[in-house]
Design a protein around this nucleic acid. Structure first.
Lengths: 156, 156
DNA sequence: GCGGCACTCATACTTTAGGGTGATTTTGCA
DNA sequence: TGCAAAATCACCCTAAAGTATGAGTGCCGC
């Protein structure tokens, strides 16, 4: 492509652009007059569009949601071995009422202090009870006492 | 009450009614001029109201109905006499295999040292496991952990 | 009435459990 | 193959549990 061709093409381009601009201007003027002529209609149209939008927004915002209830089933495994205190074992081990009480609370995971609060005695008393309890169950740890007591049907 | 009085009263009534009518007429005229003066505003207002209504109608007619889902959990009780590990709970709590092992031995009443011997690790390791275990079960004592784990069907 | 037992409490001490931190190795999974 | 989680271990410290001993009170049965 020679330089000459480029120049000729540029002229064509400029000419085309000018033409396009002119037509655009004319169209714009035409549109302007249209706007002036139909000002009221356009005004009304704008309001219509605006308030239609408002109405839609209002409806969506305020519409009461339809409530749909979904029931989800959740499995709960419950062991139903009914506990019954073994009185004979209680007698055999020689565990007293109070000691059994402490043992039950122990099995629920309470600390000595919490047990003391629960049965309205001092921590020292709880310690004495548990010590004697351990002796009677022949264990040296509360966890072991709990396990053994359960196997003897002294606690659930 | 005499007839005279009635007549006099009727005159008063007619006079009053005429006055009221006149005032009403005047008010109406006033309002008419107001309407004429503000014709455009009233026109716009009518359009606004109309299209707001249209918008609401459109929205209600075309919009996908808003559905609010309410999930109701229904417990399905599964009764079982024999122990069966609740895998879901295990997953939910995030307790690992080793931690569960430690938990089981704990429940048998073993001390940390005994557990360490049993599973061939150091006491420190057992402590680490139990600490993490307590965190996952949201407890701070082994007895409480045992009780909770039993209730969650993690141990027999 | 008195001994025995259950219950209560205290003090002093030892042991065990539990928390916190940090580090290394294994392992399962993408 | 590389990363995250699990598993392993150590050290230090505090809190809780457990032991030992002694002592006071109230109840029951002989």
């Amino acid at each position: 492509m020679t330089t000459n061709t480029v120049f000729r093409n540029r002229s064509v381009l400029i000419y085309g652009l000018s033409l396009a601009l002119l037509m655009f201007l004319l169209k714009w003027l035409e549109w302007r007059f249209l706007v002036i002529d139909h000002a009221t209609e356009i005004y009304a149209g704008c309001i219509a569009v605006l308030f239609t939008g408002l109405g839609i927004w209002l409806a969506l915002k305020l519409a009461r949601p339809k409530v749909q209830t979904v029931i989800v089933e959740r499995e709960v495994i419950i062991r139903t071995d009914s506990f019954m205190l073994d009185e004979k074992q209680l007698e055999a081990t020689g565990i007293s009422k109070r000691e059994l009480e402490v043992l039950q609370l122990m099995a629920e995971g309470l600390s000595n202090e919490q047990i003391a609060e629960r049965i309205f005695v001092s921590v020292n008393t709880v310690k004495t009870h548990s010590s004697k309890l351990f002796g009677k169950l022949d264990v040296i740890r509360r966890t072991h006492a709990i396990d053994k007591a359960r196997k003897l049907n002294l606690i659930p």
